[in-house]
Design a protein around this nucleic acid. Structure first.
Lengths: 131, 131
DNA sequence: TTAGAGGTTGACGTTAACGTTAACGTAATC
DNA sequence: GATTACGTTAACGTTAACGTCAACCTCTAA
């Protein structure tokens, strides 16, 4: 009886690259740096849903201005690696650190958005003066 | 009668560098790239309060993961350069574009924060299970 | 069987954002 | 007048994150 698993999905390197609008070189590069670990069919890379998710997180990190190393660090935080109390406690510390950093980033972002809003406002006023 | 102006403040390159925790090389580099334009006393650079503000904005941009060019672009949006309607309209467009980009960035940021929160939660639960 | 579309591993090239060193000028201080 | 502290320009070095070849495999369709 064949095991039918609708959820199981594999992707070629090209499929994944096109979906996320990156090059295959990028995917190989991420693998070199230890950010992705696709399995192999012969020589050929085979990506599964978990790899896809990791890639998504990496690219989200990039959009936030995180380095690949930083994204890798954060992704590691999502996985329950440590098994003893000390490891978990140290992980909690690291998570809180990152959260603070990102909160700071969020504040900077909001300030910039406010500045842009004000600038747009001034533009509109200039326009209405010109009539 | 000497003009006493308490607000007028000048800074040496070192003062500014130390205040913002960057190197003097960085300030000279920003000038090369057209991001700063300090006046000169002889050969020596003299920064005023406006230069300081621009630097602050550049560094804020960096923390957001913006490139220097992007920051320069944004800073230009703060100044009312265009004087005719078309220029102003085009500026408003650009401002709105940037705002959308930054809003997207903010969403990504918030997602990441949620993920980290969840991760921390799981850690805490692991801990309480260990007891 | 050959042409084409996919994959692979090197390995060198490129850009941004500075770091680093050299070689020099100047002003105060010991 | 030599050292020290600060400034200058010029130029080469460095790192991250890929781009861009080249040279090669492998399967399938014409």
């Amino acid at each position: 009886m064949p095991k039918l698993d609708k959820m199981k999905q594999d992707y070629s390197i090209r499929e994944l690259a096109e979906e996320f609008d990156v090059t295959t070189r990028t995917l190989r590069f991420y693998e070199e740096k230890g950010l992705l670990n696709p399995s192999r069919s012969g020589q050929t890379r085979v990506y599964n849903i978990a790899d896809r998710t990791r890639l998504k997180l990496i690219l989200r990190g990039k959009r936030l201005g995180l380095s690949l190393d930083e994204s890798a660090e954060i992704i590691l935080m999502y996985d329950p690696i440590g098994t003893n109390s000390n490891q978990i406690l140290s992980l909690i510390d690291k998570i809180q650190d990152k959260r603070l950093q990102l909160e700071q980033k969020k504040k900077d972002l909001e300030l910039t958005l406010l500045d842009l809003e004000a600038a747009e406002q001034r533009c509109s006023e200039s326009l209405s003066k010109i009539h």
